[in-house]
Amino acid sequence: MGKFLPLLVRFVDGRSMQVTSISEAEQALAGQWPNKEADVYREAARLLAAAGEGICRPDIAFSAFEKAARQQRLLRPHKPSASLRILDSLSAPN
């Protein structure tokens, strides 16, 4: 399990991937994106590589990846887990 909350990424070719770590984010960058020349994509790639080398904090690199995926409309909503649904139902006002 990765360090970060999971992101569900759906690529241009219809393939999907759950991303929870820096290494998974680097793998996801190799997928089909709408625009790999976009500044936000290139910045995410640069920061992920720097995080792998220990030059950049992983949370900053992962945030850059999330921003790039969001701007290129690749992020898909995650269904809440069963335990989260139960917690929500218990805390909801009657």
Rank of each mutant, 00 (worst) to 15 (best):
I60Y: 13
R76E: 15
T20C: 09
V9N: 08
T20D: 06
I55R: 14
Q32F: 10
D39M: 06
R57K: 14
F4W: 13
F65H: 05
A92R: 12
V19C: 07
R73I: 01
L5M: 10
L74A: 01
E37A: 11
S81T: 15
V40T: 13
A82R: 14
Q71F: 13
E24Q: 15
L47N: 04
R76S: 06
A64Q: 06
R57C: 00
M17F: 10
S83K: 05
F62W: 09
L87H: 11
D88Q: 15
Q71T: 06
N35K: 07
Q18H: 06
A38L: 00
H78M: 15
G2Y: 11
Q32A: 10
L90M: 14
K3C: 00
A49C: 02
L29F: 04
L90R: 12
L8M: 11
L29K: 07
G14D: 03
L8T: 10
Q71R: 15
E24K: 09
K79D: 08
L84W: 09
G14W: 10
K67G: 05
W33G: 02
E43V: 06
E24Y: 04
A25Q: 04
L29R: 07
G14T: 08
R57W: 06
F4K: 13
R46Y: 12
L84T: 06
A28H: 09
S16N: 05
P93C: 05
P34W: 11
K36I: 07
A25T: 05
F4D: 09
C56A: 14
Y41W: 05
Q72H: 10
R70A: 13
I22K: 05
C56M: 11
S16F: 01
S16Y: 02
Q71C: 04
A28L: 01
A49T: 09
H78I: 13
G52V: 04
R85Y: 00
F11Q: 03
G52R: 13
M17K: 13
C56L: 04
L74G: 00
R57L: 08
E43A: 03
R85I: 03
R46A: 14
P6G: 08
L8H: 15
A82D: 10
C56Q: 15
G31I: 01
R15N: 08
I86H: 11
V12G: 05
V12M: 12
P93N: 08
I55Y: 10
F62H: 03
R70W: 04
K67L: 15
E66I: 02
L75H: 07
L7D: 05
M17N: 02
R15W: 08
A25E: 04
A30Q: 11
A64H: 03
I60K: 14
L7Y: 10
S63D: 08
P80Y: 14
P80H: 14
R70Q: 12
D39E: 10
S91R: 13
A82Y: 08
A50K: 13
A30S: 03
N94A: 14
A49R: 15
F62N: 05
S23F: 01
V12W: 09
P6Y: 11
P6N: 07
R46M: 14
D39G: 12
R73Y: 08
I22L: 04
F11C: 00
G2M: 10
L90N: 06
A92K: 12
R57G: 00
E43W: 02
K67F: 09
C56H: 03
L7M: 12
